[in-house]
Nucleic acid binder design. Sequence first.
DNA 1: TCGATTACTGTGCAATTGCACAGTCCTGAG
DNA 2: CTCAGGACTGTGCAATTGCACAGTAATCGA
Lengths: 216, 216
Amino acid sequence: MSLTSRQLEILSFIQEWIRERGFPPSHGDLAEHFRFNRNAAREHLLALARKGEIELSANDARGIRLLKDSAPRQFELPLFGNIAAGAPITAPENAQEWLRIDPDLFRPRADFLHRVDGDSMIEAGILKGDLVGIHHQAEARNGDIIAACLLDRRTGEESITLKRYRRRGSEVSLLPENPRYEPLVIDLKRDADEQELPGFRIAGIMVGLFRPGAPG
Amino acid sequence: MSLTSRQLEILSFIQEWIRERGFPPSHGDLAEHFRFNRNAAREHLLALARKGEIELSANDARGIRLLKDSAPRQFELPLFGNIAAGAPITAPENAQEWLRIDPDLFRPRADFLHRVDGDSMIEAGILKGDLVGIHHQAEARNGDIIAACLLDRRTGEESITLKRYRRRGSEVSLLPENPRYEPLVIDLKRDADEQELPGFRIAGIMVGLFRPGAPG
DNA sequence: TCGATTACTGTGCAATTGCACAGTCCTGAG
DNA sequence: CTCAGGACTGTGCAATTGCACAGTAATCGA
């Protein structure tokens, strides 16, 4: 039995709440957040329990247990796809998958993983299919490997690409680590003004990688 | 600040309770189980919070969050050093460290991690300092990257090295992925007989890698 | 058109719950 | 000996909380 979109909203909120605080929300907490009646909260919980998503413990305050995916998210990282239209590309609810890798194994802490889809960074030891750990931050130093977020203004689609970062004045170069590829140069002044250029922002810096599987 | 034995009892009970039910116990639940007053429960919780074991959310029913890891070892991998004398090099009790990475993220499952200490595998995208995931198995196919276990018969020390495996008859070649290094060739027949040669066995095959930190 | 389901509002109650305050008993360090 | 801290008992209160019951409205397949 599948969930309605509203029920999925409620379930996601409960998961998020538990991850953040370590204990489930009460009926009142749900009602306050969604701005509905406490009884509406109760009925949603009953529906989620009926559909096997959660288990309710009768008469116990916050007596909610997540049945699916009950592992603590505290030690997991979200993996994001390459392209997002509309919603921000690195919003937790858009995660393709959650991998049980402790974010604190990276320095600084990783906020999400990104799958590398080409061989443009091969000389930095980053192969196609590798999952790179990214620490969310809007600025980078020269020489950092960054997850660059490029916006195609015609389609509204955002994509993430991994490149070495170099900035001179208002000119940003995104350098591949493979002689067969060309650097991408962006003029921040023009980028801010013109509509034809792809919008650019730094999604974060690379803080490590995970490779599931041996190389060829 | 360390816990008293009583406080440890209480903390263990809370961890167990959460694992079983998915939400923390109330003061009353603690009081009922330990057959003491509800206020005694509260004071124990305050003590645990003071000592940094838990975090309490004021006025929230069951507002307890565990701060230190209660993550099951199930989702962790041991990291082994390079050299072991005497005891088998990959015995869990000799682990340098346990890292929270789900062994099942690798295919096949990883049994331990090994830190790469040179650049002999650089062309396979494996850099110095990388942690490679190894699946325990005694045999390998040609082309597999293996963790080779070499025994120095004079000192009794075992060391692990990562190489690509190739076997022709009784001749095993351990091939680096770097033109500046030479292959290591072992004759299995002579290895079994003579005392001067280093003993060789396959500790396992590489099934992935983890790199904490960005490259240069 | 009917019934089922979803998604709510509104009210009320009894039990649960966190918390405050007042005490007791014991142990170990200064 | 004193004093602090741990480990409790006991009481009381206000807020929180789960839950029951009574409705409303919209949607949707039969």
